[in-house]
């Protein structure tokens, strides 16, 4: 008999959330959802959780299982018990709990609406759209999203900043920026470059890691950043990345001082004075000038080659 620990909260009880333990004989092949359904049917009908398809298609049953968010319908219970010696099922993180394992996904959906998740073709179509294969391939990293919320649950940037749009909404945004039929890429990227958009991702890779559908929200965000920079859309994030890159091209190596200086500007540097003082006192001040690496001419040549190839291909996709 295995011990299954489940997060319980009922707002009508007027009590704090608690962890409840259930004894359950976990059979080979049972998913965490199977276990919850058994508990719900045979032990405790008051246990609340969302589920529908049981085949990892509907995206309803996202929850945290031994600390990692995923779909309970495609997560096997026994391997978790064997690995950790316990099974703790909790609601998704970064979302308000409504009851037991059911969370309020209102903000999640609002974020999706905020990126305008529909085609903006920009004019009347002249005929049927023919989307070539290479254009469809670009969308692979985003199109399988089933909106389960697992990525948002683990997003470290969202945890620190509730206004951040989050990985699922931005993966959806990517879906339209790189859609051959959409005509508003630049407009979209301008809006996504505002604070709490693409530049607020801290690249912690949790979203790529936990997505049950192998969507790569972080990769989608990176590609939108690159496109935004190509289109010259200004933002603090773009300014920093460009400052960084300029120093690498100049010597082959990063120049920390020049990057910070260029990224923050004079006013920003003044605000950093207390930190800078500490850095100087400890002898940790980065070098102001850096010597180019021996093969710096190679770097210049490779950069020219990359740019030439891109021009020949007619720019980025």
């Amino acid at each position: 008999m295995a011990k299954i620990t489940v997060y319980r909260y009922d707002p009508d009880e007027g009590k704090e959330a608690r962890l409840q333990e259930y004894g359950h004989e976990v059979k080979n092949g049972q998913t965490v959802l199977d276990v919850l359904l058994d508990i719900h049917y045979f032990q405790d009908p008051t246990l609340a959780f969302r589920r529908s398809c049981r085949s990892a298609i509907c995206g309803s049953c996202g929850m945290s299982m031994n600390g990692r968010t995923g779909l309970s319908c495609n997560t096997q219970a026994k391997p978790l018990l064997e690995r950790d010696g316990y099974l703790v099922v909790e609601p998704m993180k970064n979302m308000r709990v409504l009851k037991d394992l059911v969370v309020d996904m209102g903000d999640f959906w609002q974020n999706v609406y905020d990126v305008e998740p529909y085609l903006r073709p920009g004019g009347e179509p002249k005929g049927p759209y023919q989307v070539p294969k290479h254009a469809m391939d670009l969308l692979k990293i985003a199109q399988d999203c089933i909106m389960c919320g697992s990525c948002l649950s683990e997003c470290t940037s969202r945890e620190a900043n509730p206004d951040y749009l989050g990985p699922a909404a931005l993966a959806k945004a990517y879906r339209f920026v790189f859609d051959a039929r959409d005509g508003a890429a630049e407009d979209r990227l301008r809006s996504y470059s505002e604070p709490n958009g693409i530049w607020d991702c801290d690249t912690c890779l949790y979203c790529n890691e936990v997505c049950p559908m192998h969507v790569k929200p972080m990769d989608a965000i990176m590609r939108m950043r690159e496109k935004a920079i190509e289109l010259g859309i200004p933002s603090q994030g773009a300014r920093h990345a460009l400052a960084f890159t300029a120093t690498v091209l100049k010597t082959g190596k990063l120049n920390e001082f020049a990057t910070v200086n260029k990224s923050l500007g004079f006013k920003g540097m003044v605000a950093q004075a207390p930190v800078a003082a500490k850095v100087f006192l400890r002898g940790k001040a980065p070098k102001i000038r850096k010597k180019p690496i021996e093969g710096h001419a190679d770097v210049v040549k490779l950069n020219a080659l990359v740019q030439r190839r891109r021009r020949m291909k007619g720019g980025r996709p």
């Binding site: 690249t203 990176m222 590609r223 950043r225 690159e226 920079i229 994030g237 773009a238 920093h240 990345a241 460009l242 960084f244 890159t245 690498v248 082959g252 190596k253 990063l254 690496i293 021996e294 093969g295 190679d298 770097v299 490779l302 950069n303 080659l305 990359v306 190839r309 891109r310």
Partner: peptide, 26 residues
């Protein structure tokens, strides 16, 4: 590897992923 370039640290990749790939291949 005294003559190696910066790995890009994600920031170069934000600006030019293809370039980061070639520099790292070097």
């Amino acid at each position: 590897l005294k003559d190696a370039t910066c790995s890009g640290a994600g920031f170069l990749q934000d600006v030019d992923y293809d370039l980061s790939l070639v520099l790292n291949a070097r």
